[in-house]
Structure formats: C-alpha cells, structure tokens
Design a binder for these strands. Sequence first.
DNA 1: TCTGGGGTCCTAGGACCC
DNA 2: TCTGGGGTCCTAGGACCC
Length: 434
Amino acid sequence: MLRALADCNNFYASCERVLNPSLQGVPIVILSNNDGCIVARSAEAKALGIPMGAPFFEVRRICEAQGVKVFSSNFSVYGEFSERVMAVLAEHARDFEPYSIDEAFLGFPDMPEAEARALGLRIRADVLQRTGITVSIGMGATKVLCKLANERAKTDKSSGGCLVVPYSPEGRKDFLAGVGIKDVWGIGSGLATRFRAHGILSANDLTNVDPPFVRRLAGVVGERLALELRGIPCHEMQENPEARKSIMVSRSFGRSITHFDDLAEAVATHAARGAEKLREDGLLATSLVVFLRTNRHRVDQEQYQAQAEEVREFPTDDARIWCASARRILQTIFRTSCLYKKCGILLQGLSSASAVQTTLTGLDQSPPPERSRLMQAVDALNARLGREVVRPGSTGLTRPWRGKSDLQSGLSLHRPDQLPKVKDGPKPRLRFHE
DNA sequence: TCTGGGGTCCTAGGACCC
DNA sequence: TCTGGGGTCCTAGGACCC
C-alpha cells in the first residue's frame, strides 16, 4: 500500500490571503488566542526570521519595521477552508484519514514511483484550483516516511511540491541520511537530546540501531518510529476515526485575576461551551475537571496550580448541570491571594447520546425530556443569532477576564461583498454557500 | 507590560487485592 | 534484625503533535 500526507502550506496565512488577495507577496502572521503567540507565518514572514511560536511582544518591532501584516486568528474561517480542502483530497484517494485542520493521510494501491509522483502533482493542482490553497504532498510506505517526504517537498523547490521517498533501500537510506534526528516526526527536543548523546544524529542512524536499545532509550514510541523509518508500518490508516475521549475548553486571561467571582464566571463560561461541544458531537459526559494556574512565566510571583474532578452518576450534556458543577469544584481549589492567569475545564467519560442508556434495573438514565428540549432551543437560537447570545447567567455579564483579539481581519466566507474578485486568467474557483 | 489551545499516548508509581 | 510475590487498576505527569 502506498501512503501520502497532504499538508497545507502556511495554512492560516493562506486562508487570509485567499479572502484578501492584496496580501499576496506581503509578509503576514497569525496570532494565537489572546493575541499571545505567532501560530502561522507566510513564507515572507518566515524569511524575515520570525520564529514559530514566538510571543508576539518579542517580534512586534520587527513586524512594524518590516511591514508585516498581523492578524488575530479566525478559526471559523479556517475550519471552512479545511472542510473544502479535505473534500477535494478525499475524492482522489482510496483511503482517507483527516489528521489535523490542515493535514490528511491518503491511501492508494501500490504503483511505480514515477506514477506516484505524477498522481501527487495532480492532486496538488486540483486542490489549488478549487480552493486557492497550496498543499505539499509526501509519499511513502509508512506515515512517518510520508511526513518526512512532505517536509522535504515544502523546502526543496525542485520537488514541485510533491516528493516520493525512494523505493530502493539505497535511495531511502540516502534520503533518511539527510534528515536530522530532531526533524523526525515524533521526536521532540527531549528525545532528540537523548538520541544525540548516543551518536544518533540522523533518521538513517536511527534505522541502524539495535531495536531493544531504541526501546530502552525511547520506549515503545521510539521503537515504532524506528520501524516506520525502515518502511514497516506501525501506524495504520484509520478510516473511521475513533471517537474523542475528552473535550477541553480553556483560556488565558487578558490580565491577572484574583477574585473568586471572576474565576467562577470564567469556568462557567468554559463549562457551558464544553456542554455545547458535547451537543454538537452528540455526546454525553460523566465527569468534569476544573483547573486553574497562575502565570508560570512570572517566577517572581507566587506559583500555584490545581485541578479537581467531579464525577456524576448519570451522563449529561446539560450546560446548567456542568456550570453548577464547575463552581463547586472551583470552591475546592480556589486560593485567595493568587494572581491567576488561566483556567479551564475538561469533560471526560464521553459516550454517545444516542446509545440507549439502561441501568441494571432497567431504569432509563437519559435526562428528562424538557431539559433536552431547553438545550435544543438554546442551540437553535445561538445558531441563528450568534454564539453565546443565550447562555447561563452564571457565565457573567461584565467578564473582566476576557482576552484580546483586536486584530481580526473580519473576513468571512458568508459575506458576498467580501469575496475576492476574479479579474483575468485562471484563478481559484471557489464555491461559497449563500 | 505583553508568553495559545486542544488533543493523544505512554510510563512510573501508588493503591489495592489475593 | 528479620517481615512475599505477583497481578491489576488508576492517576499524575511527561512528551509530543498541530
């Protein structure tokens, strides 16, 4: 079986550009929530040396000096672009596995190397034509090899955006010898340091190490990695992605928070959003974790972090239940005199809402029908009027803990007046709803 | 002054049991 | 002084990824 990884180039930056073609050729960066860190950069911004993940305040001056356009992230727009890219990719593959917002694994029957590359180039051209987004494609026998080929396709211009790991053992060896150990997918800075200490410097070096030794050094994860590098698949394609196991909602605050009431509003807001996510996915949860922490970058201040859990007998997706639970948990971990920087919630013990719920005695555990109808009505109103228009009172009115998001492009795929105009020549063909 | 959010998987160690 | 062995389950924390 031949596998491929398709990965969108500079995805968030590319989305902003499709909606605003005047940004073509201009360096742009996208900021994380709270306008805190750089989470995406256009090629021009990368060339200016703006690092991924940098706190914005550290690169603000470069951005101003170099005319870099800076945007808060707009995840609803990126999500819609993602759906369109995925739909095109899925058309081309026998097996299809979305992996992240901007990546998917594809599976094909075996074929000669040259054919594989031609296929990859066709897919790439089709995605560009129909969405305006450029993808890079890496192909090989295993997911890890695909990932490395993809990285190479992005940097090696001669690849034309698609690179196949050579089929011959010697060719693969040469290819892997050019990949630093830190650049292997699944090897972070910790593992890389450990490997380097034992003279394992490249991906090829890792394929030459005795498997039990790799296991001692990097556990079963490392062992699988080494096998994948040798072309032996350990990570199969997952056609039907497993249901998720937890739902997290958390935010840093715009400024430090000390009052219990402000924290209570924040955790209630996150709990309500978590319950909404449950309903979106047709899930119920049985347990809620609330966590909070002070600013870990301020070593001069008192550090405190805590979390606690409440487990319910019956699963539910009702926002009011989880909001009340969140407040109770907060009371058990809240400390006065701390300067809190972040809090969040985690819903666990997820199960499908449509599954029949019966106890040993045969009693129905599903929530009372009027409760479900209330949540349905809330969801319907918010779908029409906007997020959080109707929400539990415990989520607060003044909300002093809210973070910044001042640099939104404000562009949307649902505003005809904002759509890019096609002048002449072949341009991305976009289909917008409404 | 200002430092993201949302996931998964694995492992070590403690609790507990027989 | 000396005070078993083996198994399972759970949890916290680490590592990694996008």
